[in-house]
């Protein structure tokens, strides 16, 4: 208790991170095929990220822009701990709640309620903590009675809304959002944005990947632009987004 109260200023630190994926075309999927195709393997390596370094301040709203395949989602996955960097170091301080793609982290056979508990366990929360958050989660998601139905019967909108509802209601210290808000209807999008604002004012660090440059300009304090796995620039939202847009409309 004698420790000085010094909160780490950097919520996420990415230093010299590279990520290489191994792609094997026509990879044998059975022992039989492996034996038959012995010696004929077509392995390729894809560098999704190359020497990326950036820091994200605690409590800030960080945006990531770039073309499809530029490495934005890979970077987010690394921050979430889903993948490990091939080289370099990535540190995320605090509880990370990630919302990647549609319905991230749901087990199709389980009911919505069971999935909420499962997600909570994955985030390190007790059943009691999740139970006390349950009403808020159900209410925010708007899935109603369907909470006790298996999520595989959910519509894509319900799936996404419940996913978002869990991600934001577990009081994350770091929230990673990958282009998911676009899926919901106008009203839900507005609620999501309001909720993210609320979390941010409560000290949550938010990292948002989006193609909606207007939204990024509007929300973010800092923006990073990824291009072919390299971090082209990072800094003031207007400057970075302008540079990205100039580049995007340029014939290459």
């Amino acid at each position: 208790m004698n420790e000085p109260a010094r909160a780490p200023v950097q919520a996420v630190e990415v230093s010299d991170v590279s990520k290489r994926f191994r792609l094997e075309l026509n990879r044998p999927t059975s022992v039989k095929e492996a034996v038959l195709s012995f010696g004929r393997r077509d392995v390729r390596h894809l560098w999704a990220l190359r020497d990326v370094s950036l820091t994200i301040e605690k409590g800030s709203f960080f945006g990531l822009v770039g073309h499809n395949g530029s490495g934005k989602s890979t970077l987010l996955r690394l921050m979430a701990g889903i993948h490990r960097p091939t080289s370099g170091r990535i540190t995320a301080r605090g509880r990370v709640s990630a919302l990647l793609e549609l319905g991230s982290g749901f087990h199709p056979e389980l009911t919505g309620r069971e999935n909420v508990f499962l997600n909570g366990a994955m985030l390190g929360l007790s059943r009691r903590q999740m139970a006390s958050a349950m009403n808020d989660i159900i209410e925010f998601s708007g899935v109603g009675d369907q909470i006790d139905a298996p999520v595989k019967i959910y519509s894509s909108g319900m799936y996404m809304r419940l996913g978002f509802s869990v991600a934001v209601n577990v009081e994350p210290e770091i929230l990673l959002v990958d282009e998911v808000i676009a899926v919901g209807d106008e009203e839900f999008q507005q609620r999501c944005l309001q909720h993210m604002e609320r979390l941010r004012s409560g000290g949550t660090t938010i990292v948002l990947v989006s193609h909606d440059t207007a939204l990024v300009r509007d929300l973010c304090d800092h923006v990073g632009w990824l291009d072919g796995g390299h971090l082209r620039s990072v800094g003031d939202p207007d400057e970075v987004v302008d540079a990205y847009l100039v580049h995007a409309t340029e014939p290459t």
Partner: peptide
């Protein structure tokens, strides 16, 4: 197999 898709979306 039951969790392999899940594991691609969330770390546990």
């Amino acid at each position: 197999d039951g969790v392999s898709e899940l594991r691609k979306k969330i770390y546990f």
